[in-house]
Every structure is written in C-alpha cells, then in structure tokens.
Amino acid sequence: MTQAVELILARNLLSAVELAAFIIDTDGTVVFFNDSAGALIGRRFEEVGPLDQEQWSSEFGPFDEFGQLMPTDSLPLSVALREGLPANGRFSVRLEEGDLVPVEVSALPLVTANGFQGAIVVFWRAAE
C-alpha cells in the first residue's frame, strides 16, 4: 500500500530539516522519524522501523514527571489530533540509555479533502 501523498511529502520535507520530528498515520503508528529525532532518542529510523502506538510507548514514552507511562489516548495531543487541530504538550521520553528527558511537543494534523491523513509531530528538549 502506498502512503497518502501528504505523508510522503511530509517525510521528504522532514528528512531535510534539523528540527526533530516524526510522522504518525491515521492509526497512530509512527511511520517515520527523522535523523534529528533519532539523535535525540538515540536510535535511527532505519534501525527501528515503523512502530505502532503500543510499541512506541513502551520504547520511548510518553512518561510523566514521575517516570510513569502516560496513557497516550488521553494526552491532549492525541485528543487534539483526533479533532484535527494543532496541539502542544510536554512530557518526557526515554533515551536509549534509559534516561528520561523532558520534551516540548507540537503536532500538526494533516487534514485534507479526504479527511485526516496523519500528523507531523515536532519536538525538542524542554528547559528544565
């Protein structure tokens, strides 16, 4: 199956920028993350491949300030994506060596004439 053209274009764009970012599809699967995101979490997409929501959560988070895994479907981010609106959030992700790092996250839903096609999610280290 070929991905929606909006996701293909988004991947091509994100491959060329320094801002850490990933792409999720309509099922919430992380279908791509760029090298900058890979540098932040300590893994390259080529090593990891696509990850469904459960796999992504168990590997990287999101975790709350106490290190507890946050339920992804209740995140403001997920709710906003379902509603087709941009959203911001803050939580922690786990690096390869196990450290938790707080990140700020912004999500840009890709809503087209054919409906919700997925989303671009950008993130960066939050100020402590």
């Binding site: 199956m1 070929t2 053209v5 991947r11 491959s15 060329a16």
Partner: peptide, 19 residues
Amino acid sequence: ALGQRLDGASGEWISGHGL
C-alpha cells in the same frame, strides 16, 4: 522524485506507486 531519490526508496513511500 521531489525531495527524494527514487532508487532505494520503498514503494510504500513513493507517490503513485500503488496506482
């Protein structure tokens, strides 16, 4: 081919491939 090299890309990530 906009923004990517076709050689080495998987069909899933090439516009129009499925068609």
